Simulated scan of single mutants.
Amino acid sequence: MTELIGWMNTTFGSHNIEWKQVVLIGMTPFFLLGFAIEWQIMRKRGTRHSFDWKENFTNLSLGSSYQVFELAMHVLVVGAAVFWFWDHRFFTIPINGWTLLPIFLGVEFCYYWFHRCSHRVRWFWTAHVVHHSSENMNMTTAMRQSMLYVITGWWLFFTPLILLGVHPTVVFILYACNLSYQFFIHTESVGKLHPILEYLFDTPSNHRAHHGRNDCYIDKNYGGVLIIFDRMFGTYVEERESVDYGIKRQVYSQNPLTLNFHEFIDMWRDVVRPGSLPQRLKHLWAPPEYERPPSDLTTQASIESKPSRE
């Protein structure tokens, strides 16, 4: 494995290759095959209601724009930033049969916190909201991604592993494997699996619950491949009632620009609204549902309405 990584870096130039997107693009034939199988299964069941072809096309458009933008930003900014952390690493962890599983668990742990923050911190939610804005569930929903991820800083959550001494190529390839697995759990064609699998892994059932806007499902099941960290940190919920997909403030649009930027624009509108500076800035790091106390807006309005003494 170490020799393979060295060859990839020597051959392609480690700073300029976004290995996550390279792997995801390489997986595209398997993604399309999985979607075709899913569609056939649902067609035979007579339950094709989750296949809105206009929305499926929107999902593909969002996924394509996300990949192109991520590749460009990696070349311009992220690659250099990530390798700055690598140059300042504390250790150098070898890649072998003993270390690969712990590194995989480390990537899963970092992903759990990235995903959890993407729901509970509005700055990160402005990107992740795109993925949750579909009211249908099929494998193309996995491609419903935002161009803003690289701007809001998804890659920062994986820098602790790089500082500890895991090469960025290894981190991003394992993260891509994590995301590739998740593509196939965005489906209603698979019911609940064996209880042991449901207990350990992020299954289609567990992930359907994650996409629900039902009150019981909101902000649950953040795992990528595994569901064990949700069980450890109290964010696990079992799929029980029928899942209502979408977001609380649903956006009824198929326009990729609207879907990419609506929440980001709304966040900054809230920031610039009159009020005290701490309360205004809180919109950046507070949960998406945060609203300022009426007293803050009332006080500011009162100050602005007082006549000048000059």
Rank of each mutant, 00 (worst) to 15 (best):
Q250I: 02
P274D: 01
F157C: 05
F201A: 00
Q145I: 03
A176Y: 01
D230R: 09
H49F: 15
L4H: 10
P168E: 05
T58A: 10
G275K: 02
Y217C: 00
Y217T: 00
H74T: 03
R208E: 01
E291L: 13
V23S: 04
P168H: 08
R144P: 08
Y236G: 05
L277C: 09
I25D: 08
P294E: 11
F229P: 09
H186R: 07
H119Q: 06
G46Q: 01
V170F: 03
T187G: 03
P307W: 06
F83E: 09
E3M: 10
E198R: 09
I196C: 11
W154H: 13
Y222W: 05
V75Y: 15
V121M: 13
N138P: 03
P204E: 00
G246F: 01
G224Y: 07
Y66P: 13
T47G: 04
E38R: 05
C117T: 11
S205H: 08
R213A: 00
T11C: 02
F183Y: 14
L100C: 09
P160L: 00
T203P: 04
Y149D: 07
L156H: 11
L100Y: 11
F264A: 05
E238S: 14
I218A: 03
P94H: 12
D296E: 07
I247F: 10
F158M: 05
T140K: 13
Y245W: 08
